[in-house]
């Protein structure tokens, strides 16, 4: 007993050290910074809540709200797109589905910034790939959605779609085919099958995917900068500005802690309801 315990600790040690150095220590430092006087840099002992007052009072709720709305919309759209895709890939498992899955996974191997700049070249007005081709081939001139909220949302969905799809595919693989047949045999129509059997059985996969998507989208910055231009200021951009141009680390730290709190409020209730063991023990 004691021996196996020591061995377990030894195995977990490298990861524990990494998490300690890369996650716990920075968070503790940021948390500490969020309580020192504004625009100061020293670890002083007179702690204050003033940064939190500014974070909440100085209009930062606006970028935070944009981030939350963006993350929420991205999650909903990704779920709506990924669910039927996962169902089709699961139903028609075989060579065709393998190729389709590969095509969806492939872009993940390319740097996110490269993909987003590519998307921005595609959407560019005038000589952009889409507008230019339409003009040259069909004589149609179109405007652009570049530098709008819509373009930023498009980028968010494009980047985060696989993070929803793959957990959902795992979720679908856990739905026994015979349960669906039994439902049909017992008189369930298409919509009833969806509501009574497919949806509850794929819910854990969907929840894991939605969490990935929401958390990653909430912290997304590149999509906004590259595709949203100056129109969209999200909380990550605001934080970045506090730390860089504004040189107000304590306020940046307070904003960071707020974002972590928002994330935790969303993540923990969902995680609590997912039977991770069922998903992983497959």
């Amino acid at each position: 007993m004691a021996q196996s315990r020591t061995r377990l600790l030894a195995v977990l040690l490298p990861l524990s050290l990494l998490l300690l150095a890369g996650f716990v220590v920075p968070i503790v430092i940021v948390a500490f910074y969020s309580f020192i006087p504004p625009r100061s840099f020293e670890f002083s002992s007179d702690l204050t809540l003033q940064n939190y007052a500014s974070a909440i009072g100085d209009g930062y709720w606006r970028p935070l709200l944009w981030s939350a709305i963006g993350a929420l919309l991205t999650t909903i759209i990704c779920l709506l797109l990924a669910w039927p895709t996962a169902k089709a890939l699961d139903r028609f498992a075989g060579r065709w589905a393998q190729i389709a899955t590969l095509l969806i996974a492939l872009p993940i191997f390319i740097s996110e910034s490269v993909r987003l700049i590519g998307l921005s070249l595609f959407l560019m007005p005038g000589g952009g790939i889409l507008a230019g081709s339409l003009d040259a081939l069909f004589g149609v001139s179109i405007g652009t959605i570049l530098n709008t909220h819509l373009a930023a949302l498009l980028g968010l969905v494009y980047v985060h779609f696989p993070f929803v799809l793959f957990p959902l595919l795992l979720g679908f693989s856990l739905v026994p085919r015979e349960q669906i047949e039994a439902g049909r045999d017992l008189g369930a129509g298409r919509w009833q099958l969806f509501r009574e059997i497919e949806l509850p059985l794929t819910a854990p996969g969907a929840a894991v995917g939605a969490l990935f998507c929401f958390v990653l989208s909430l912290g997304a910055n590149a999509e906004m900068t590259i595709l949203g231009g100056q129109v969209v200021t999200v909380i990550t951009r605001a934080i970045e500005q506090r730390f860089s141009y504004a040189q107000d680390w304590p306020l940046g730290a307070a904003l960071t802690m707020l974002v972590i709190a928002v994330t935790a409020i969303v993540v923990f209730p969902v995680l609590k309801r997912i039977d991770m063991e069922r998903l992983l023990k497959r």
Binding site: E178, E181, A182, R184, D185, L186, A188, G189
Partner: peptide
């Protein structure tokens, strides 16, 4: 199947 007046008990039982 959902409109037939028949019902099947599966090998796996297929309980929900």
């Amino acid at each position: 199947a959902n409109q037939r007046p028949t019902c099947m008990v599966f090998q796996s039982l297929a309980l929900f």
